[in-house]
Design a protein around this nucleic acid. Structure first.
Length: 261
DNA sequence: AAGACACGCAACCGCAAACAA
DNA sequence: ATTGTTTGCGGTTGCGTGTCT
C-alpha cells in the first residue's frame, strides 16, 4: 500500500506556492529524491542543512536526513519484514523497550521508523487482540501504551506470541554486520570534489562486495559492502558462522541499485 | 456503485543530547 | 561557562488505498 507521492508544490503542507523560498513539506517527489541522492552520493554530508541547500532543495535538513535514512539509503532492505525479523523485533523490544533506533541498529537494512510502524500497526495490535481474546478486560487499545510493561492478560498473550521468538533462538547477532556505502568511482562530476561520503560511512573501513547503479547523467556509482564495523560488545557474540547466517537470513540479496527508482 | 471505515506508511513535531563558536 | 546550532529519537498525525456495508 505504497502511497503515491502527491508531490509537487501542492502536497507541501499548504505552501501557497508563490514563495520560492519557503520550505516544502509533505511527500517527496522523484526529482527531489534524485537530487538528494545524488548530492549525498557525490559529496557526502557535512551538515544536513547544507545538503538541502547544495542539492537545491527547499527542504529542512531534518527532512533531508529523514528521507535519506528511511528511504534513499542504499543499504535498506526493500522487501517486507519477514516472520523471522518479526520475531527478532519482538524479542528485541522485550529487552530494549521502545528504543526503536537501538532495535534498528541490530537489524541491518531496517529503519527505526519502519520497525516502529511495524510494531504499532501490526504486532501491538495482535498483542492487544490476543489479550482481549484471552479474556483480559481492560482497554484493548491501551491507546498510548507501547511500553513493555503490560497487564496480566496482555502479558500472557505477549508471552505466547514471543515464545516463538525466544524458543526459536534467534540467530546470535554476529560481531559484525554487513553495511553498505556508496562511492563514486567513475566520472565524478566536478573535478576535485571529494568522492567519499562523509558521515554515512565514517566508521567503515574496507570494502567487500560491490554492485553498481547509475545516478545523474552517466556516472557510475559502486556500492560497497563493509563488514568490518565495530559494534558494541555488550550485545554481540562472536560465533563462527553467525555472520553468514545473518547475512543470508537478513540480506538475501544486495537490495540496491535496481530498486531505488 | 457509493460511502464509511480500517489499515499501513511516510513524514512531521517536539524534545533532548551533542557539538561548535 | 554560555549560547546557538545541528542531529537523533520517539510519538503522533495525515493521507492514500483497500475492504466492508
Amino acid at each position: 500500500m505504497v502511497r503515491k507521492p502527491s508531490h509537487g508544490d501542492t502536497a507541501g503542507a499548504g505552501n501557497g506556492g508563490t514563495e520560492a523560498t519557503k520550505e516544502r513539506k509533505g511527500l517527496w517527489s522523484p526529482e527531489e529524491d534524485e537530487r538528494l541522492f545524488a548530492q549525498i552520493t557525490y559529496h557526502g554530508v557535512s551538515t544536513w542543512s547544507s545538503v538541502a541547500q547544495l542539492a537545491g532543495l527547499r527542504r529542512s535538513g531534518k527532512s533531508c536526513r529523514l528521507r535519506w535514512m528511511n528511504y534513499l539509503r542504499p543499504d535498506l532492505k526493500k522487501e517486507p519484514i519477514s516472520k523471522r525479523e518479526e520475531e527478532i523485533i519482538i524479542s528485541l523490544q522485550r529487552s530494549l523497550g521502545n528504543r526503536w533506533s537501538a532495535i534498528a541498529a541490530r537489524m541491518p537494512g531496517r529503519t527505526d521508523n519502519e520497525i516502529k510502524n511495524y510494531w504499532n500497526s501490526r504486532i501491538r495490535k495482535r498483542l492487544n487482540a490476543a489479550a482481549k481474546s484471552g479474556g483480559g478486560g481492560g482497554d484493548g487499545g491501551s491507546s498510548s501504551s507501547t511500553e513493555p510493561a503490560a497487564p496480566a492478560a496482555e502479558e500472557k498473550a505477549e508471552a505466547e506470541l514471543t515464545n516463538a521468538a525466544t524458543e526459536a533462538a534467534p540467530l546470535p547477532i554476529p560481531a559484525r554486520f554487513p553495511m553498505f556505502a556508496c562511492q563514486v568511482l567513475d566520472g565524478a562530476g566536478d573535478g576535485g570534489s571529494e568522492s567519499t561520503p562523509s558521515s554515512t560511512t565514517s566508521t567503515q573501513q574496507n570494502s567487500g562486495d560491490e554492485s553498481e547503479a547509475s545516478v545523474g547523467d552517466s556516472d557510475t556509482i559502486h556500492f560497497l559492502s563493509f563488514d568490518d564495523l565495530d559494534y558494541p560488545a555488550d550485545f554481540l557474540v562472536d560465533v563462527p558462522g553467525a555472520m553468514d547466517a545473518w547475512e543470508s537470513e537478513l540480506y538475501p540479496a544486495n537490495p540496491m541499485s535496481s530498486s531505488l527508482y
